[in-house]
Nucleic acid binder design. Structure first.
Lengths: 228, 228
DNA sequence: GTCTATAACTAGATAGAC
DNA sequence: GTCTATCTAGTTATAGAC
């Protein structure tokens, strides 16, 4: 038996034309649907994809679980949309920066800023991506194979810039580009675990701090011990 | 109906005295039990705590799910033991280093090495800790409250060393100690996601690389752009 | 210490009324 | 677009035989 419905929307957007699926992106979009995806993303982020039940998602939206299936054909479809929305946005931003003519250091710095900046709009999605990646990839079909492909593409972008920076002498050459990329990537995304938009630092300050340490190092300039 | 049992251990360690519970650590220990915990940890790490069923754990051990409950009173108890074993080990190592008289830079460097080094013995536990932390903390009782307490203690250790390093001039003073700690912590632990012990780099090389970048920076020494 | 059998429950998903 | 009602399958955990 389902819990009693606590109606919030007793008739708003009642009979709007909702045949506008399959537009913009390939998946299908509507404001109602987007809202449900957002609610679900927050729950997925907080408790994990599997620990979140369709009943909880529905409850949060003020409807019953069965009604969710009018919008989505499965729970997987919801998380799919959460992740795709984020990945599409961030890869598009990366491409925009790379199409410019910045030097490696400023391009990399800009990419770091894009990463931290995406915490504002995509914090939940980033958390889900990290926590539930291995589970989603362990599913029998290849539905989430695009995760690996997106990761590969992004890795190429970063590694190329690091190598370019080494070639022109902006970055030290005794670091491994791929390892360095992973280090940066991990540090940026993992921030989603504890970052709160209403906290005392914003994503810009976070990026500034990170760029400072990674580019120039934690050691004070006037010190022994540095083996450089 | 359970799958057919594929007996692996047809009588080994058959009638060993197994009343030696509640020793060493508080939880309870036996080789058999430890082995089961290890198997479970690998599964938890691969698929997530909730996606891993007690049937799978039992299957992996060559027994049936009911038999698991001779060793553990619940699935939660198993993951509890996975996490405690790791946390006890790593905090003990931190304390050992801090009880020495090293300068901040070498202490911090040693702590980084402990972190990466723990990937060898605790890779699965570290993965579980990261992926399932928020779920375990969301459980009704406070059973996993020690996670927060351990985190707090470790944070104090790190932040103190960073501040000490700033005080003696080993570390630059224009970075936030707490933020820097989080950055380091996250980067070290998150490595568990992709690190493979049989890969082409070991945990020592990983630590070397990380220390190099974080202490001395990615920028080449002879370059403009560094605002220091 | 393991197995057999099953209880008690919860999950995702569906069909059709409104 | 939502609700009611329900199906099916899978989950943790238990009881008692061996």
């Amino acid at each position: 038996m389902e819990p009693v419905s606590q109606r919030k929307n007793s008739g708003a957007t009642s009979a709007t034309t909702r045949a506008r699926r399959a537009v913009a992106n390939g998946a299908g979009a509507s404001e109602r649907r987007d809202h449900l995806v957002k609610l679900a993303a927050e729950l997925f982020a907080r408790k994990g994809f599997q620990a979140t039940t369709v009943r909880e998602i529905a409850l949060e939206a003020g409807i019953l679980s069965g009604s969710l299936y009018h919008h989505f054909d499965s729970k997987e479809t919801i998380v799919d949309e959460v992740l795709r929305t984020f990945l599409d946005d961030v890869t598009a931003r990366y491409r925009a920066v790379l199409s410019g003519d910045g030097d490696p250091r400023s391009v990399l710095s800009e990419m770091v800023r894009i990463g931290f900046g995406s915490l504002d709009a995509h914090r939940a999605a980033i958390t889900v991506m990290q926590n539930d990646w291995s589970y989603l990839r362990s599913l029998p079909d290849d539905r989430f194979g695009y995760l690996d492909r997106a990761e590969d593409e992004v890795e190429r972008m970063w590694v190329e810039q690091i190598q370019r920076g080494q070639a022109v002498g902006q970055f030290r050459s005794d670091v491994d580009p791929k390892l360095t990329y992973r280090m940066i990537r991990d540090t940026v995304w993992v921030t989603a675990r504890w970052f709160r938009p209403d906290g005392h630092l914003d994503t810009g300050a976070l990026a500034d701090h990170f760029v400072k340490v990674v580019f120039d190092g934690l050691a004070s300039g006037d010190e022994t011990g540095g083996s450089r």
